[in-house]
Write a protein that binds this DNA or RNA. Structure first.
Length: 428
RNA sequence: CGGGACGUAGCGCAGCUUGGUAGCGCGCAGCGUUCGGGACGCUGAGGUCGCGGGUUCAAAUCCCGCCGUCCCGACCA
């Protein structure tokens, strides 16, 4: 029943939360998971936040196929070398061996740039600012729910530009205005944006930038990446355009992705020994109302009042009318991280008030009917800020300063890279 | 792929050393009592003991092989 303590066994805590809060469960093929409705609703919240920002920065969504002819993958040397160990290949289909094997995309640069070659002739065709929401497959050694699954969901943006400067600006715009902003404002996760070391760079990239966040086990999580790809893919796939000077030139590329791993980041940043704590901006249920009653007479009084109050609150409200005891329901919703709980029983009704409990602090307070909507709204705001503030304090307490890093110079192979916690490095 | 642990009811486990009727807790179903922080009683359903082979009159238990899961490492959104 009770969760393992974070301090005692963080991996066990994580797995148990994912399972008992009904976010996801392992599926039958190794390393794959079933994302359950509550977990998927959290992912949909992240998708909305990211998709809104992708569109606000001028991008459009499109969709490329799952299969990539294997020959195509081989054209960019670093890229194929980097991904070869983890690609899944279809060699048999339709009852016979395929003449040319099909790679299940581990990422789509190859297919997309082979296609861009047909779409780009002139500087007038640029830039191409496209994104897709898709599933990809990477045969990783050690799968972990949400953090590293064989198949995962993500968005991958692929843009083509006229100049290096424009492409570099695009890479950083996505990093800051899309990813960092979504993490800060919606997921309430304060994060470091930075540049990866050469050894951690995306295969085929000139430069890789990431957002890294500190989890409560004091390990860093690579929360997304944004790559400046230079002309590498344009050269490999023959994407040339006539530039303003009348000369043929290869286009400059970026790619960037954020995956279902972000759900894991939310769990591991905010969760406590009682379970999840979801930032209100992301929570599928922001307010849960737990009616309390004994007799049928009390029941109808309380349920009527609960329905009325629910309608007056401007938030995602759920009334838990199951035949369970109140204490069971309190734990149920705390485990699922619902920010605000309203308890309403005969004692409350007699006093024209309800009892409001905040997941952030665990505190309860009596709130008169007339002030409920305003108080709930304020509590949701406080929770959104409070979670981010707690995460920021935790990060500050466990992040090494440049002075600390200087003393550990030997550990820093590349001054461009960064480490949050030198003793354990980057977890993902 | 290297090191470690483990596969017995939906979940968590005992039983294995010393072979002989497959058990416990939680959960699940029905009924009753309960209900302001994870309720209790009674009744009941639920099992090819991971898979395959071997030894034996007899295998959850002993032997061999395989598969899978979890943790630590290298790789990774």
């Amino acid at each position: 029943m009770a969760l393992p303590k974070q301090d005692e066994d963080f991996p066990a805590w994580y797995q148990e939360v994912v399972k008992t809060a009904e976010l996801a469960e392992p599926s039958l093929a190794r390393g794959t998971m079933v994302i359950r409705p509550y977990g998927y609703a959290i992912w949909e919240g992240i998708q909305r936040a990211v998709d809104d920002r992708i569109k606000a920065t001028g991008h459009q969504n499109l969709y490329f196929p799952l299969f990539i002819p294997s020959r195509l993958l081989e054209k960019e040397a670093e890229h194929v070398e980097g991904f070869a160990p983890e690609v899944a290949v279809v060699t048999h289909a339709g009852g016979s061996d395929l003449e040319e094997p099909l790679v299940v995309r581990p990422t789509s640069e190859t297919l997309i740039w082979a296609t861009y070659a047909k779409w780009i002739q002139s500087y007038r065709d640029l830039p191409l600012l496209y994104n897709q929401w898709a599933n990809v497959v990477r045969w990783e050694m050690r799968p972990r729910m949400f953090l590293r699954t064989t198949e995962f969901l993500w968005q991958e943006g692929h843009t083509a530009h006229e100049t290096e400067q424009e492409a570099v600006e695009e890479t950083l715009r996505i990093l800051n205005e899309v990813y960092l902003d979504a993490y800060e404002e919606v997921m309430a996760i304060p994060a470091h944006a930075g540049r990866k070391s050469a050894s951690e760079r995306f295969p085929g990239a000139v430069e890789t930038y990431t957002v890294e966040a500190l989890m409560r086990d004091r390990k860093s999580l690579q929360a997304c990446t944004s790559h400046y790809l230079g002309q590498n893919f344009a050269k490999a796939y023959g994407v040339r355009f006539l530039n303003r000077g009348g000369e043929q030139e290869e286009a400059y590329a970026t790619s960037w992705g954020l995956s279902t791993r972000a759900v894991g980041a939310v769990i591991m940043t905010h969760g406590d020994d009682q379970g999840l704590r979801l930032p209100p901006a992301l929570a599928p249920v922001q307010v849960v109302i737990v009616p309390i009653f004994r007799s049928d007479e009390e029941r109808s009084r309380v349920m009527e009042a609960a329905a009325k109050l629910a309608g007056g609150i401007d938030a995602r409200v759920h009334v838990d009318d199951r035949e369970e005891r109140p204490g069971f329901k309190f734990n149920h919703w705390e485990l699922r991280g619902v920010p605000v709980r309203i308890e309403i029983g005969p004692r409350d009704l007699d006093a024209d008030q309800v009892t409001v409990a905040a997941r952030l602090t665990g505190e309860k307070e009596a709130v008169p009917f007339g002030q409920l909507a305003a108080r709930v709204g304020a509590l949701l705001d406080e929770t959104q800020r409070g979670l981010r503030e707690q995460a920021r304090e935790f990060r500050e307490a466990h992040t090494f300063r440049p002075a600390d890093l200087a003393e550990m110079g030997a550990l820093l192979k590349d001054p461009g890279g960064f480490m949050l916690t030198p003793w354990c490095g980057s977890e993902e």
